[in-house]
Design a protein around this nucleic acid. Sequence first.
DNA 1: GTCTTTTGTGAATGTGCGTTCACAATATAG
DNA 2: CTATATTGTGAACGCACATTCACAAAAGAC
Lengths: 199, 199
Amino acid sequence: MANEKEKTEVRREQIARAALDVMARRGVRGLSVAALARSVGLVPSAIYRHFPSKDHVLDLVLDQLREHLLANVEAVQAERADALEALHALLRRHVKLLRENQAIPLLVFSDQIYSGRAERKTKMHAILQSYLAAVGDLIRAGQQARSIQSGVDPAVAAVLFLGLVQPAAILWHLSEGGFDVTRQAERAWRIFAKAMRRP
Amino acid sequence: MANEKEKTEVRREQIARAALDVMARRGVRGLSVAALARSVGLVPSAIYRHFPSKDHVLDLVLDQLREHLLANVEAVQAERADALEALHALLRRHVKLLRENQAIPLLVFSDQIYSGRAERKTKMHAILQSYLAAVGDLIRAGQQARSIQSGVDPAVAAVLFLGLVQPAAILWHLSEGGFDVTRQAERAWRIFAKAMRRP
DNA sequence: GTCTTTTGTGAATGTGCGTTCACAATATAG
DNA sequence: CTATATTGTGAACGCACATTCACAAAAGAC
């Protein structure tokens, strides 16, 4: 079935990638070991050469997600001096990330997280926390640089920042791709920025 | 097992209620027919006296959700003249609804919706759409009454309104109830209202 | 080249769970 | 009070699916 043998490290990446693809097409529930293997061009049992269990595949996906999110934060910090502009750029990157990995919202909200092993719930929580902390720091920096109002609580605003995209992502899935997330995020940003910007 | 026989209409309500309870405790994946039956004090097969399938239980839960959401909108329309105050009251009711039915976010985001029968996904979409439409109408009314800025797109703001709560609800679940949704919603509202209110 | 390790295969196992069905108990109608 | 409909029970069926295992093939070491 496999065209050729591959090193485990290569396969692990392929499998994590395939997991996202399968979930994007068939939903989280549709991610069976069989479907996963088929998508990579392997036989179900071969998955276990590279992962001790299906759970560990999702763990790797989550690890990659965390790295991607934090890389986005670092990138916008490096390329934008103004905090509000950095946040705006981060929002665009966030939307791009979700558009290119449509399964992410499905996974993040899935009961694979909430009913699964407690460790995974903890891991997901940690990912969100570190992202929120980074966004909060960005906002705090903006307040010190006098470009963001000092009255807003950075932690509160960071959570609201997530809210600029989250409902839109849900709508995008419910509408089978008919809802324009990019447009919604851009317009919601204007509202958000209006309240954040210092007069 | 059952203390006594009950009419189907009573049982259906009990079962729908129990479904939310079980999901709140064990997650959506933990909602087995067995767990559901046990929670009502029945034997698994008895569920099928009142519902043709487990799917139909969730359908009823969704129907009740829609009614509850729309009832909230009508209530705040009746009790508040000012649109922004009505929206604020709606937010509080929304938070209360989620706090009293902790399983709602889990269900709404679950793959029971996204990987299940297409009809349920459609139904969920319709529920969200009608809620968003109602919120949009509220905002439009506020614009005509000159209490809300005319520059904002009501549809965009309605989606953002959902974003005031949605990430908070996720965090609440991830933190095992440690995150204060009410507080977050209240403070996020101030930011939101600042951008919406007419100067 | 031979030996060892790594990767892939196909069949089999076990389990959880939705659903069905024949039968029992209770309520309702006439 | 009797007949019928409604509701509840326990056992059994079947299916989807994660996981295991003995064996095969390719890669790497020496």
